[in-house]
């Protein structure tokens, strides 16, 4: 058996395996897409037939947009994700800087405390945080007459998660790699700590901040359990909660509509992923936190 023949055999096997596995990971979405763009739902449960659209049209997408407040959900997801990213980045940058670059009493203890939170299952905080948010909401209601933070508010959704060990640790590591000379030069020039952080540290660490923002966006966008508990009115639901409730509840009877709803929900994530995929799958980034 010649060497090139063995190589060709190996390659064929490799691609066969890859294609088989691609079918496994993507078939639900391919099926959903095919059903969603078929005006006629007659074939959607037949095995190979369902994967080919019959009578292609966008009619089911129009039904989703008119019958389900899809655009409201999309807007809510965007608002929640935006504030989650904003606060996560600001808080992680501010906390990462002193932990990486300043000497002060209590530093070691604080760092260990933050890292220790990674051991706790965050799910167990759901009940206490629910109670805490209820009290905070009552407090705001009583003092300023408006529930700024509390149950059924957007800050109630994102505030509990924005100060996390992952973000702080990531920024601390990024700041540790910056040469001390850069900081010393800024200090000699009379820069205050806040100026050093904002003018020197942040621009140099832009790639790490981008990575943190991207991971935070995906997590915030996909978050489902906590938002579903905190938010009680339908007009505040993000996509992951609103679409799930609608597509498993009142609209579950029309599989075509369910699938169109799924395609519309997955589409923003896919577009975003196509633009930023090197952050996720290059394998070399700090994926191992």
């Amino acid at each position: 058996m010649s060497k090139s023949f063995t190589r060709a055999l190996e390659l064929t096997g490799q691609y066969a395996g890859l294609i088989a596995f691609t079918i496994f990971t993507t078939f639900p979405f391919i099926w959903a897409t095919s059903v969603a763009i078929s005006a006629d739902p007659g074939n959607i449960w037949l095995f190979p037939g369902a994967f080919l659209p019959t009578d292609p049209s966008l009619v089911w997408f129009k039904r989703v947009i008119t019958d389900i407040p899809f655009k409201d959900y999309l807007l809510n997801s965007t608002i929640i994700s935006f504030w989650t990213i904003f606060f996560t980045v600001v808080i992680s940058v501010m906390a990462g800087y002193p932990l990486a670059r300043l000497r002060f009493p209590g530093r070691g203890l604080i760092f260990i405390g933050i890292i220790a939170t990674m051991m706790l299952p965050s799910e167990v905080a759901i009940i206490p945080n629910f109670v805490t948010l209820k009290h905070i909401g009552d407090f705001f209601e009583a003092t300023i007459g408006y529930k700024l933070i509390g149950l059924n508010t957007f800050p109630g959704v994102f505030l509990p998660g924005v100060a996390g060990a992952f973000g702080i640790f990531l920024m601390k590591q990024a700041f540790e790699q910056i040469p001390q000379d850069l900081i010393d030069a800024a200090r000699v020039d009379g820069a205050k700590e806040l100026q050093i952080l904002w003018r020197v540290m942040v621009p140099v660490s832009a790639p790490s901040i981008a990575a943190l923002a991207i991971f935070t966006l995906v997590n915030a966008w996909n978050e489902f359990i906590w938002s579903g508990i905190v938010l009680t009115s339908r007009d505040k639901y993000p996509l992951a909660v609103g679409m799930f409730n609608d597509l498993t509840g009142p609209f579950a009877v029309s599989t075509s509509m369910v699938m169109a709803g799924i395609v519309l929900s997955v589409l923003p994530v896919l577009i975003f992923f196509a633009l930023t995929q090197r952050y996720f799958i290059s394998g070399l980034d700090g994926a191992v936190k």
Binding site: M94, A95, P98, I114, L120, S122, A125, G161, V162
Partner: peptide, 24 residues
């Protein structure tokens, strides 16, 4: 300065991460 910078993280983690452990 260090504690000023750490304050937002420590307050939020105190309320939403450490307090729940005890309260739970």
């Amino acid at each position: 300065i260090a504690y000023l910078f750490l304050a937002p993280a420590l307050i939020l983690m105190g309320v939403f991460t450490f307090w729940p452990v005890g309260y739970n």
